[in-house]
Computed example of a mutant assay.
Amino acid sequence: MKSAQQRKVRELNSHYIEQHETQMEQKSKSKKGLVRRLSALGVFVVFVIALTVITLHSQKTVLGEKIEKKQLLDQELAKLELVERDLRDEIENLNNLNYISEIARRDYYLSKPGEIIFKVTQSSSD
C-alpha cells in the first residue's frame, strides 16, 4: 500500500491549465460584476416604482379632495344663483308701480283717494 504522500497527484504547469484558470477567474469576476449591476438596477427600479406609487397616491388624494371641494362649491353656486334670481325678480318688482302700491297698502295701510281698507283676519277653520 502506498502512503498518503505517494498518492498525491502532481499538477502539471502547462499553459492550457493556466489559461483555463484565468478564464474561470474572469468568468467569476464578470458574474460578480453582473450580479452587482443587476442588483443596482433592481434597487433603482424598485425605488422608481415606489416613488411613482407614492406620487400617484398623493395625487389621487389631492384630486379627491379637490373634487369634493368642487361639489360643495357647485352646490353653493346653485344656491347663490337662486338668491340672485330672487333678488333680480325683487328689483324688477320694485320698479313696477302696481307692486309698490300693493306693498304700501298691505304693510303701511295706505289707500288711494276714496278707497276704504278693511283688514280681514283669516280664521283657523279654513
Rank of each mutant, 00 (worst) to 15 (best):
S30Y: 02
S123D: 13
K79V: 11
G64C: 00
H20E: 09
K8F: 01
G33R: 11
A104M: 14
L77Y: 12
K32P: 00
I116T: 15
E102R: 05
S111I: 03
R105S: 13
S58R: 15
M24L: 10
S39R: 11
K66H: 14
F118V: 14
Q19W: 10
E92A: 13
D86C: 11
E76F: 01
L41G: 07
H20W: 02
I103C: 08
L97C: 01
T55N: 11
L87Q: 01
Y108G: 04
L51E: 05
T121D: 15
S111F: 03
Q19D: 06
E92H: 13
V35N: 10
V62Y: 02
E81H: 09
H57S: 12
D74L: 10
Q122Y: 10
S39D: 08
K60A: 11
G114S: 08
V9D: 07
F44V: 03
Y108W: 15
E21P: 00
N98W: 05
E81F: 09
H57L: 10
E84G: 02
H20G: 03
I103S: 04
Y109N: 15
R85F: 01
L73G: 01
E102Q: 13
V83T: 06
L34M: 05
Q23D: 03
L72C: 04
K8L: 09
R88K: 15
L34V: 03
Q75T: 06
A104D: 13
N95R: 09
E18K: 13
Q59G: 00
G33T: 06
K29G: 03
L110E: 14
I17R: 15
R37G: 04
V120D: 12
N93D: 14
S30C: 04
Q71I: 05
L63M: 04
V45Y: 07
K27R: 13
D89P: 00
L77K: 12
T52N: 14
V35A: 14
E102A: 15
Y109M: 10
K27C: 05
K66W: 09
T61S: 08
L94W: 11
F118Y: 14
R85L: 02
H57C: 08
S30G: 01
I117N: 05
R106M: 11
E90D: 11
G114R: 13
G33P: 01
E76D: 03
L110G: 02
D107F: 10
V62A: 01
K60I: 03
A50R: 08
A78N: 02
E18C: 04
L80Y: 04
E68W: 00
K31V: 05
S101L: 07
I117G: 01
N96R: 07
E90A: 15
I67A: 01
D89F: 01
V35K: 15
L34Y: 07
H57N: 05
L73M: 12
E18W: 07
E102F: 07
V35Y: 10
L72F: 10
V120C: 06
S123R: 13
L82H: 09
V46T: 14
E115V: 07
V62F: 02
P113M: 03
L94Y: 08
G114Q: 13
T55V: 14
Q26P: 01
I49A: 15
S124K: 12
L38D: 08
H57Y: 08
